[in-house]
C-alpha cells in the first residue's frame, strides 16, 4: 500500500462515512482513497461492525412472559424449514425476508447471468471486450467489475453518454446486498478541481433523484470507482441511473448537466 497517498485523517473519514456525516469533499477524498486502495473496504467493514456492536452494549430486557408460549403455538401451527432448504449465501438473506419495503419488481434488465455460475466471469469479460462501448480491456479493472458481478443479486447496467459527451460509455454494477456500486467509465473527461461526477437513481415518474455518490475520472482512459451506497433507493431494481457533473461540495440535488444515463 502506498501510504503516502492516503489522507492523514483516514480513520476519521472512515468513521464519518459510517456515521453518514461526511461533507461532499470528504466523501470524495475517501472515495478516491478507496479507489486507489480497495483493501480499505475492509476498514469500512470494521467500522460498520464497531457501530453495529452498539446493539451488544444494550442491557438485556426479558420479553413479556407470554411471548414464549405464543411463539411455540405459532411454531406448532407451521412446519419448520426443511433441512434441504438452501440457506442464502450470506447474511444478506435478510433481503429475502418479507419486507414492507419490497415493491413489485420492475422488468429485470441484464439479469441473465444470474445462476450461470462460473460462466459469469467469461461472459462479463466478453461483454466488456466485445461491446460497442469500446471499453479497453484493462485486466485489473475488468477483474474488479467481474468480482462485483459475481455477487449474488448483482445487477449490471450499461451507461451511455448524452449529446454533450457522446463518446462516453461505461458499465455500472450495483450489489444490493453489500450496498455497493462499481462504475467503469471511458471517455468521460477529467473535471476541473472541485468538481465531480455524481450518480443519481430516480424512480419512474419521480422528480426526486436519490444521491448515490460521486467520483472523478482521469484525464484519459477508463476509470473504475467503487464505493458503498448510503441511500438504499440507489440499489432498488428498475431505477434509472443518471450521471451529472456538479461542484463536489454542492447540495445533494442534481444541478449540473446530465452527461450519462443507464440504457436498456
Amino acid at each position: 500500500m502506498t501510504h503516502s497517498s492516503l489522507p492523514d485523517n483516514l480513520h476519521e473519514l472512515i468513521s464519518g462515512y459510517v456515521l453518514d456525516d461526511l461533507s461532499a469533499e470528504e466523501a470524495a477524498t475517501l472515495q478516491q482513497a478507496i479507489a486507489l486502495h480497495p483493501e480499505l473496504t475492509a476498514e469500512l467493514d470494521e467500522a460498520h461492525e464497531a457501530l453495529d456492536s452498539l446493539c451488544y452494549g444494550l442491557a438485556e430486557v426479558a420479553p413479556p412472559p407470554g411471548l414464549h408460549d405464543r411463539l411455540l403455538a405459532s411454531a406448532q401451527a407451521t412446519p419448520p424449514a426443511a433441512l434441504s432448504e438452501v440457506a442464502p449465501p450470506s447474511l444478506s438473506g435478510l433481503s429475502m425476508a418479507p419486507r414492507s419495503l419490497s415493491r413489485p419488481s420492475a422488468p429485470r434488465r441484464e439479469r441473465w447471468w444470474v445462476g450461470v455460475g462460473g460462466a459469469i466471469a467469461a461472459v462479463a469479460l466478453g461483454a466488456i471486450a466485445l461491446d460497442n462501448l469500446r471499453l479497453r480491456q484493462d485486466l485489473a479493472q475488468s477483474q474488479q467489475l467481474v468480482a462485483a458481478l459475481q455477487q449474488p443479486d448483482a445487477r449490471l447496467y450499461a451507461i451511455a453518454g448524452t449529446e454533450e459527451v457522446e463518446n462516453a460509455a461505461g458499465r455500472l454494477v450495483i450489489d444490493p446486498n453489500r450496498q455497493q456500486v462499481t462504475v467503469l467509465v471511458q471517455d468521460l473527461p477529467a473535471l476541473p478541481q472541485g468538481n465531480a461526477y455524481r450518480l443519481w437513481a430516480v424512480a419512474e415518474g419521480s422528480a426526486e433523484p436519490a444521491f448515490c455518490g460521486q467520483f472523478t475520472t482521469e484525464a484519459s482512459g477508463p476509470t473504475i470507482t467503487k464505493w458503498a451506497l448510503i441511500d438504499e433507493d440507489c440499489s432498488v431494481d428498475g431505477r434509472q441511473l443518471l450521471i451529472t457533473a456538479d461542484t463536489a461540495s454542492a447540495p445533494l440535488v442534481p444541478e449540473g448537466p446530465l452527461l450519462m444515463q443507464s440504457v436498456l
Partner: peptide
C-alpha cells in the same frame, strides 16, 4: 421478537 424467532423456525435464512 415473535416474528424474528418464527422466521428462523419457518425459513432457513441463516448461513
Amino acid at each position: 421478537t415473535h416474528e424474528v424467532f418464527l422466521s428462523i423456525w419457518q425459513r432457513n435464512l441463516y448461513n
